[in-house]
Amino acid sequence: MVPLSYYLVLSGFLFACGVTGFLIKRNIITIFMSIELMLNGVNLSFVAFAAHWHALAGQVFVFFVMVVAAAEAAVGLAIIIAVYRTRETLNVDQVNLLKL
């Protein structure tokens, strides 16, 4: 059996990748995907713990996260398309109308 720590290291690696991507990328789509990466990193640790402790709560959480992520993808992509249509760019640094 694969030890718990392996899953956790992988989960942390995925999450860190997500964070890094979120921080350094300018393209909204990439940022969006980085968020998905972070969510899935978390999902991985949830299922790993659930399996380790033989508890179902973690798996239930994963479903919730997936549902939310799907909804978020639907709404988020719609927003991105709307943004692209009005601004003709996907660079977040140029989407700064609300900034002081």
């Binding site: 964070v19 979120f22 921080l23 350094i24 977040v92 700064n96 609300l98 900034k99 002081l100």
Partner: peptide, 9 residues
């Protein structure tokens, strides 16, 4: 700064 990514950072 108003820069989202710096907040995230």
């Amino acid at each position: 700064s108003g820069n989202l990514r710096s907040y995230a950072g």
